[in-house]
């Protein structure tokens, strides 16, 4: 008998014969999204002693075409949480609308009187990550995933720095430094060199963390063909969120490119 998970719950071929699939639609099963279309690349984030810094570039690519160059992939939810989206841009927009509706409902239940546009701080970054992980997992279980990898950066209920991710499968993961997409390969080692573990992140200064993230963004721009040197960066701390959406990578040096051989036209 076949004990592999693939055979669980199916009639045994040796008893009932091979499954008769003739009544099934001939053009195969109904399919949802099979791949993303317009995509954003890496999101990079890192915890430091009293907050979190998160960055993503402003590019939305259509395949290898740099299609939209002013796309904001960081979304401030309230004074305690910022989300960074990698992956499909239209799915990100769908999630953005979900979050708008969530934020309205939060305001109904607990209207602050501060008059601050984003003051629905009753949901912290941790609550938000829990919520998003349920949304993403539900969609993947429906075989209709939202093609994103999301970083949730902010503060938890004890005002401690919080950083966690959820992907299109609903997989959650948390670490002192995180990155999605290409950054998961290239940026994470750079960030880990600055703060290898939670203990190190707890002593890291904001400036060191911001510089490390900017450095990682620069390396990504050097090596990731789907990236841009215009980016957004946010710092979340107890006293609020500082979000800049029109930054440019500083101090680029392409000298290393001279030494690369093997791609495109070579003069020497």
């Amino acid at each position: 008998m076949n004990h592999l998970p693939q055979a669980w719950g199916r009639p045994r071929d040796d008893v009932y014969g091979a499954y008769n699939a003739s009544f099934l639609p001939q053009d195969g099963p109904k399919q949802h999204t099979q791949s993303p279309i317009v995509t954003g690349t890496s999101v990079v984030a890192m915890k430091f002693k009293d907050g979190v810094v998160v960055a993503a570039d402003n590019l939305a690519s259509y395949g290898s075409l740099a299609r939209f160059t002013d796309v904001k992939r960081l979304r401030q939810f309230n004074t305690r949480a910022v989300l960074g989206f990698g992956g499909d841009v239209s799915d990100m927009q769908h999630l953005d609308r979900l979050l708008t509706s969530l934020s309205l409902r939060e305001n109904y239940a607990d209207p602050g009187s501060s008059g601050d546009e984003t003051d629905t701080a009753s949901l912290d970054a941790k609550n938000l990550h829990t919520y998003l992980s349920k949304v993403m997992y539900k969609r993947r279980t429906d075989f209709n995933p939202l093609w994103n990898h999301i970083l949730v950066a902010g503060l938890d209920d004890a005002d401690k720095p919080f950083l966690a991710s959820v992907d299109l499968l609903g997989t959650t993961f948390s670490a002192p430094s995180l990155a999605t997409g290409f950054g998961a390969h290239l940026a994470v080692p750079i960030l880990r060199r600055v703060a290898p573990d939670e203990a190190a992140a707890e002593t890291l200064s904001m400036d060191d963390a911001v510089n490390a993230v900017k450095e990682a963004m620069k390396v990504l721009f050097y090596r990731d063909a789907r990236s841009l040197d215009k980016y957004s960066i946010a710092v979340i701390r107890k006293d609020g969120v500082q979000l800049k959406e029109d930054e440019k990578l500083e101090g680029q040096s392409w000298a290393f490119a001279e030494t690369i051989r093997g791609y495109g036209t070579q003069i020497h």
């Binding site: 239940a109 829990t130 209920d157």
Partner: peptide
Amino acid sequence: RLTYGRPMNLSE
């Protein structure tokens, strides 16, 4: 608790 990981608000 399941969706947001937080206790229910009483007025809600």
